[in-house]
């Protein structure tokens, strides 16, 4: 996975990444609602999965349900590790243009699981959503834009990882798909953080939680959230 990642032309990838940044930034402040213990509708998720990806997708979804069931109430370190492993194992890295036919498509966890492949942000989103489903407080999770150096070379790549902050001013743990094990950020000298966001503070006003919100379509981050809602995450 990481090999293929490295082989991609760097400047194109970065451009694409930065282009998405504006939209993401706008959506960032909107955030995601902090989901309750089980903030999804299993039957609707199954229906969506069946409709979109058939039996193969359903199998992965059932495994995901089992994972959630198994990890509920476990220690946070276990939860982080298991979730990180789950997606790193089941999802094959692929460029968006090959996967979705468009640059920088942000997939919902369901789409990522159904496809069995995804881009770096698809990993991060899927892990983020899954951990929130397990009851991890939203403010501890942040998606971080990083500049990744591949190996010992000077070649850098635009990348995204999920950071776990035990406290707001703590050093985060990094959940990455290039390096499958979870490590403290300070040990990841190959990654250079630039900016982070999550869904906290979104709908803080409380009045704009509406699927018909015309702004949703204008922002990539909000677009994913809306698609998730239509697929059965509530």
């Amino acid at each position: 996975m990481s090999v293929r990642f490295v082989s991609r032309p760097l400047d194109a990838s970065r451009r694409r990444f930065l282009a998405g940044l504006g939209g993401v930034a706008a959506a960032l402040a909107l955030g995601l609602p902090t989901p309750p213990a089980q903030a999804f509708d299993p039957d609707r998720l199954r229906q969506s999965m069946q409709r979109l990806y058939g039996q193969g997708g359903l199998r992965v979804l059932e495994e995901w349900f089992a994972l959630l069931e198994r990890l509920r109430g476990e220690e946070i370190s276990v939860q982080l590790r298991e979730v990180n492993d789950f997606f790193n194992r089941r999802v094959r890295w692929v460029d968006d243009i090959n996967n979705w036919g468009s640059e920088d498509h942000w997939a919902t966890p369901l789409e990522t699981m159904g496809q069995g492949q995804g881009d770096c942000e698809d990993y991060s989103i899927a892990k983020y959503v899954t951990l929130k489903q397990l009851g991890v407080p939203g403010e501890r999770l942040r998606m971080i834009y990083v500049r990744a150096r591949i190996g010992r070379s000077q070649i850098t790549q635009a990348h995204m990882v999920l950071g776990y902050y035990s406290t707001p001013d703590a050093e985060p743990l990094v959940l990455d798909n290039i390096l499958p094990s979870i490590t403290p950020a300070s040990q990841r000298s190959d990654l250079d953080p630039l900016f982070s966001f999550n869904s906290d503070g979104l709908w803080a006003g409380g009045s704009t939680q509406s699927r018909a919100d015309p702004l949703a379509r204008l922002s990539r981050w909000r677009g994913v959230i809306e698609r998730m809602q239509s697929q059965g995450f509530t």
Partner: peptide, 16 residues
């Protein structure tokens, strides 16, 4: 008018 404030987190390296 009921307009929520905009908010964003400033990153200092890995830390917020």
């Amino acid at each position: 008018f009921d307009v929520p404030e905009g908010s964003a987190t400033i990153q200092d390296g890995w830390r917020q």
